[in-house]
Design a binder for these strands. Sequence first.
DNA 1: GTGAAAGCGCTAACAT
DNA 2: ATGTTAGCGCTTTCAC
Lengths: 341, 341
Amino acid sequence: MSSGEMDGEQVTIRHVAARAGVALSSVSRTLTGHPDVSPAMRQKVEEAVEALGYEPDLLAQSLRSGTTRTIGFIIRDIANPLFALVARACEQELRRNGYSMILMNSDGSVETESKNLLLLRRRRVDGVIASLVAEDSPYIKKTILSLRRPLVLLDREMKDLNASAVITDHYTGVYDATAHLIKMGHEEVAFVTGAENVYTTRDRLRGFRAAFQDAGRPVPEKWMALGGFDAEYALIHTRNFLAKTPRPTALITGGIGSTAGALRALNELGLQIGKDIAFVAIDEWPLFDVFTPPISSVYRDAKAMGGEAAHLMLEMLNGKEPSESIIETKFTVRTSTDGGL
Amino acid sequence: MSSGEMDGEQVTIRHVAARAGVALSSVSRTLTGHPDVSPAMRQKVEEAVEALGYEPDLLAQSLRSGTTRTIGFIIRDIANPLFALVARACEQELRRNGYSMILMNSDGSVETESKNLLLLRRRRVDGVIASLVAEDSPYIKKTILSLRRPLVLLDREMKDLNASAVITDHYTGVYDATAHLIKMGHEEVAFVTGAENVYTTRDRLRGFRAAFQDAGRPVPEKWMALGGFDAEYALIHTRNFLAKTPRPTALITGGIGSTAGALRALNELGLQIGKDIAFVAIDEWPLFDVFTPPISSVYRDAKAMGGEAAHLMLEMLNGKEPSESIIETKFTVRTSTDGGL
DNA sequence: GTGAAAGCGCTAACAT
DNA sequence: ATGTTAGCGCTTTCAC
């Protein structure tokens, strides 16, 4: 049989040794590819392994070696389509290199995130890849410092952590998008997204402001809603903004959830994007290509982000120093940026 | 400190025992809540644990106990928004019960799926939750039988496996959707989805056929494309069908990927759903509520699926016999089912 | 080249 | 109520 078990009993290296009539250590040597193994020995061991369906216990190997070949992946919400793409690419790359991924959702809560980090440490994962809820929680920072394992951050900026990071250049994409709106004649551009306690928002905001400044126009600070990446927040604040008179003539949403919430609000109010209001989404929903009208967007390659995260992790596991990897963004004009004026 | 390490050395139960001036086993007893522990002992141990920042090693506990409090989750593709919702709900429920989830994508390949199953076994996971690529692979079946751990299948029907299953009642939803189209006057209804080697497709097909039979109409067998759940397959076959003369007047797509592919094809051909062709999607994309026109759909609760999967797993881990849980589907008429005739 | 034995960190007998 | 010891399955000295 090949199940690694007989009669519900696990087959251990002991059984193999007994069956082959050799010592435990010889079986281990043979299986781990030690050079000092005679062909005769190899033969006997392989026969026994085959006959018993022996399979090394990764748990025991881990305890012995101190390495689990396991990476923790902490994310706010795996149901965010962008992060699902990141997670998929990351898992694939880690798996190709012999690592497994333990997935944990932090549900947008620093407490859960913290608990997850501690649990991963107790599970002795070899490293952690995380998209943190916030950068300004001293508690999380302390927890992270206590991890003492390679860490890769996704789109976060934190000092003194000795961590690698996959950083998105939001600035460029958002700058281009905003400049385009300004060129079309928009002054009252609303911006709905998450809070400034993450790099993501700060870098986008930097691009947004710079575009206005470079155009010699005042930054429309009153049309900024920077409170949450969730759809609910965007729904409420988009609704709010559009109820005012005068109202914004254009809208930029930062993030998958914000876009969903804003589109819901617009739908509810009967406002058509690309006609009643100009609209730009930062980050693309998977189905954006068949939306009507086609949505102008700031795109980034989620697959590359996941691959890079895995790559940076593997490098650190190989003893390299932490480093950063930059992901580009690209603004694409489609028809949702028409109208509004 | 609270890191569980000093000078890079892990703090073990040994250090705690030494510091507290007691025996190893007393520390263990105190920490595992054994009744025979004096208040004085508890005091000493807790002081030492606190002072050293001791943290039990889950790996060592696992080796000892034979249980890892870890569940393997195998899925075709975590970037499928429906499955991402399933995974999220499942992870949350497992986590609440002290289990962690190891996520593996099978990338639609039986080989990868098989390797993943074997790896999970070697990792000594306590159970596996899986959405299998196919039901008719004898190799997978053998691998599964050799798992000898609780197994929960998502939307799959396999005999003699002693597994629990979360089963969707696709029949009802698809029957209603098809009956609606027939009532609207459609005879040439196309159906684009995955292959019949999974329950999902077979049950949907059953509903599709039954609706025609009950209406006394011939089942439009020639408009069936049952080859793959991926968007690419749907794109090609939708394109194909619509190039014919006469062409189908209505289209049903089964699954997230199929819907995406079909919508792409329709977009490409300049055909508007709800006008040039009647359209029903089985399973909803997260953003469907803001699509124009609103898409008629067969809905199922992905969150409930994930929760049920976790629930069935936890029951089996508590020694209960395998069982099934049925998830309902509901057809909702929106405007995409107008037109086409 | 092979075997015997120690030990990774922990828990559960078994003593006392 | 507490201490001593064996052992989970494995790898790695250390002898020979």
